[in-house]
Design a protein around this nucleic acid. Structure first.
Lengths: 215, 215
DNA sequence: TGACACGAGGATGTATACACAGCGTCCGGT
DNA sequence: ACCGGACGCTGTGTATACATCCTCGTGTCA
C-alpha cells in the first residue's frame, strides 16, 4: 500500500473517531513524523481530506480539522434525505427483489443481535449490507459520489451519539420496512419508508439524551 | 496564486472545454512541462481533479481524463433533480422574496437577450445569478458540496450541445416560473417548477439535434 | 506460430533540500 | 508606558534527485 494511502487512512480514522478534534491544526512536519511518512505523501493525504470536507486549508497555517456541530446535523439531513430517497427509488426499480427480501428477513430477526451486546457489531454490519445493496442496485456512480461526503460527516457525528437499545430496535423495524418495500419493487413505499427512517434518526440525534451535557 | 492552483485551473478548463478528451493520459512530466510547473504542484492538481471526478487514476499509467457519455446524462439528472429540488425548497423558505421577484422580472424580459446573439452571454449570466441566489438562500454548505461535482460534469456535457434559440426561450420562461415561485416563498410550486425545467432540459439534451451524427 | 519469460525503459512514488511568506517577538523611539 | 518597525523563526510552497513498480518489447522455447 502506498504511503499516502496509509497517511490518508490514518488521518481519516483519527478525525472520524475524534482522536483529532475540530480546530486541531494538521502541521505537515508534525504529522509526517507521527505517521512515519515523508511530507510529500502526507500533503497528498491532506489534499484528499480537504476534498472530503474533513479539513479546511488556512493560508499560512496549514490545514485544520473542520468543525462540525449539532446545527450541521439538520443541514446534513436536508441533503441526505433527497439523496437517500433517490437511491431508494432507483434501487426499487433496478435492484434484485430477492436480495432485498432476504435482507428484510434478517432485519426481522435482528432484535436478538441488538439485545446481545456481543453481537451488536453484527447488527451494524447488517445495516451496512443493506446500504451497500441499495448502492449497488441504484447503479449510479454520481449518486454515490454525492452521498459520500454527507455520509462521512454523519459517521463523524454519530460517534457522539451513544448506542440506545430502544432506538436500535425501532431502527431495525424501519430498515425492515425499507427492505420489504425494495423487495417488492415499490418505489413510492421505499421512499416513504426512507423518509420515516431518516425523520426518526434525526429526531433521535437531536433529542437531548440522558447523560448528555444538558441535564 | 500558487503554482498548484494554476495547474489545477488550467487542467480543469482544458477538460471542461474539451481540449483534453476522455481517455487522454495526464502524464506528470509531460503536463508539468506543458504548464510550466514542477511535478509536485502538478500532482496536487491531479489529486484534486480525481477528487472532482474529472480524472481517474490508472495504476502505472498515471491518471486519465474520465469518460462521460450521453448515458451518463440520465444518471447525472437522477442526482441533480433531487438536489435542485431540495435547494429550491430551502430557498423558498429562507430566501429573500424581493430578490427572486426581481430576478423573475428580468427573466420575463430575457427574450431580447436571447434573440440578440451579442447579448447571449448576458442571458447566461442571468441564469448564473439565479443559481447563485438559490445557493445563497439555501444556506447549506453540504448541499453545495454535493451539487458541485454534478454541476462540473454537466458543464462538461453542455459544451456538446449547441445553443438552440427555441430551447433558450422556453428555458427563460421556466426560469421565470422558478423565480416567481421563490419570490412568493412557495416551496411546493418552486419544486414543481424545478422538476418541469429539469425534465425539459434533459429531454433537450437527449433529443437528437439537427446536424448531429445521427441524421 | 503462439505463448511465456526476461530485460530495458519510462513512468509514478517517495524523500529531501531550498525559497519564501506569514507571524510572533523584541527592541527602540516617542 | 505604549506604539511601531525590524528581525528571526517556523511553517508551507516548490523543485529536484533517487527508488520502485509497471508496462512494453523482444527473444526463445514448446
Amino acid at each position: 500500500m502506498r504511503a499516502s494511502d496509509r497517511a490518508y487512512a490514518a488521518l481519516h480514522a483519527d478525525i472520524l473517531e475524534w482522536r483529532l478534534s475540530p480546530g486541531d491544526v494538521l502541521a505537515e512536519v508534525e504529522q509526517s513524523a507521527r505517521l512515519g511518512v515523508s511530507r510529500t505523501p502526507l500533503r497528498e493525504a491532506l489534499t484528499r481530506l480537504v476534498a472530503d470536507g474533513l479539513a479546511t486549508p488556512h493560508t499560512g497555517r496549514g490545514v485544520v480539522v473542520s468543525t462540525v456541530s449539532l446545527t450541521a446535523v439538520a443541514d446534513l439531513f436536508d441533503v441526505r434525505l433527497p439523496l437517500e430517497c433517490a437511491a431508494a427509488r432507483l434501487a426499487a426499480h433496478r435492484g434484485d427483489p430477492a436480495a432485498f427480501s432476504a435482507l428484510a428477513g434478517e432485519f426481522g430477526a435482528a432484535a436478538r443481535l441488538i439485545d446481545d451486546d456481543g453481537r451488536r457489531p453484527d447488527y451494524y454490519a447488517l445495516v451496512a449490507r443493506l446500504d451497500d445493496e441499495i448502492d449497488a442496485a441504484a447503479r449510479n456512480p454520481y449518486l454515490l459520489r454525492a452521498q459520500r461526503p454527507v455520509r462521512t460527516q454523519l459517521a463523524r457525528i454519530r460517534r457522539l451519539a451513544r448506542d440506545d437499545t430502544a432506538r436500535l430496535l425501532a431502527s431495525a423495524r424501519e430498515h425492515e420496512q425499507i427492505a420489504v418495500a425494495l423487495g417488492r419493487g415499490n418505489a413510492d413505499l421505499a421512499e416513504a419508508s426512507v423518509r420515516v427512517h431518516l425523520h426518526n434518526s434525526l429526531e433521535h440525534l437531536l433529542a437531548p439524551r440522558a447523560g448528555a451535557s444538558t441535564p
